[in-house]
Design a protein around this nucleic acid. Structure first.
Lengths: 212, 212
DNA sequence: TAGATTGTTAATCGATTAACAATC
DNA sequence: TAGATTGTTAATCGATTAACAATC
């Protein structure tokens, strides 16, 4: 039985493997080796082998892994096969973009509805999904058993919204707001932090220009 | 003189410090200590102290750092004070959301224009920014000296767009597409990868339910 | 058998944590 | 002086890399 506990770094690489395997569909054969994945993604092959060992039951020496089987195992391990319902708070531009994104089911995420405090947005639809008033948040979450909340409100409202989500039974928060969120033990905050990305980009350019 | 070279992990924490300092404006005093930052963000205080030591010239024992000075130093170190021009390719929902986001100047990013291959979008405006046809990409980038390219096209077109960007002189790519990008030596790809975030969220929920 | 690939064990590397000295 | 905070040096921890044995 594969190891259930992988390092956070490994967990971040697994989606890239899956993505590669999904996209290499047509021209690929029945089998795929860790070496091939490593080469395609520009990663050390031992890393890939070690990561796959904790996800897949068995790779066969000389042959590699059965491609479709490995895809299944990765999907299962990453939870993409077991779709989770989510709700989104903040139906502004970014919120609407996420509500409209059709790729989430592929990653096991289904956004049920959006919420917003702006009366002008309430009861409109975005990509077939209703925008509801904040008052209906706790009721819906509890009734349907939603555990994932997506925050796309301005930074200054993020903590307040986060508290409401947790009161409504949310266990994992996907935070697009540029704010640090304080949460009780056992609640996960996953920050999609653009400021961090920009810092890394900026740093690269700085180094690039200072050395050349 | 502060150390120019910090670990990637440290670089990812610095924006959070800056954000905290910027937002704690009103009620805060003139000075701020590493301990206070650590407590507010739920990080080990020695980590914060070490990070700040490589960014700031001097903290004073017993007193801490001059808040405004530290903000300046962080902004400078992260390159947020030196605004970089960028262009965006793919003016769909997500692209439009990014074009409309007014917070980027705060992080030293200025999106000049969007590009799209869809004639229906070309020559429209989003948040006061023109959407231009792909043919104009190399000319604009070279003329203005743009070094940052943002990719918000569907995954299957990402590599092609990435190649075009690099041909146009782009040195750093901010990739929102769900695709692995192959780039030559010296070009940075910063992935804003939703699949990774979703994997971490899903993994948290799985662990949470398997242990309780 | 020979060769390619997996998977494991040991060695290296880097980051975090702990302990402590320096300083206002 | 006493206490709080900085900043540095050493110890621990974890992840990556390297070497090698196992296997089809």
């Amino acid at each position: 039985m594969p190891d259930r506990c992988v390092s956070k770094q490994a967990l971040q690489r697994l989606p890239a493997y899956l993505n590669f395997l999904r996209n290499s569909g047509e021209q690929a054969g029945k089998y795929v080796s860790a070496t091939a994945i490593a080469e395609a993604l520009g990663i050390n092959d031992v890393v890939v082998r070690k990561d796959l060992a904790s996800v897949s039951s068995r790779g066969r020496p000389k042959v590699g892994y059965v491609r479709l089987e490995l895809i299944r195992e990765l999907e299962c391990f990453l939870g993409y096969d077991n779709t989770q319902d989510a709700i989104l708070v903040g139906a502004g531009k970014l919120g609407q973009a996420l509500l409209s994104y059709s790729g989430f089911p592929q990653y096991g995420l289904n956004i049920l509805a959006g919420f917003d405090s702006d009366p002008a947005l309430v009861e409109t639809e975005v990509a077939g999904k209703r925008i509801l008033p904040m008052e209906k948040l706790p009721g819906l979450c509890r009734r349907v058993g939603v555990h994932i909340g997506i925050i796309t409100v301005p930074g200054e409202h993020a903590q307040k919204v986060c508290d409401q989500l947790i009161d409504s039974g949310i266990l994992a928060v996907w935070n697009f707001a540029n704010a640090h969120l304080n949460v009780p033990e056992g609640i996960l905050v996953q920050n999609e932090n653009m400021a961090v990305s920009l810092a890394l980009l900026s740093n690269h350019l700085k180094e690039r220009f200072s050395t050349k």
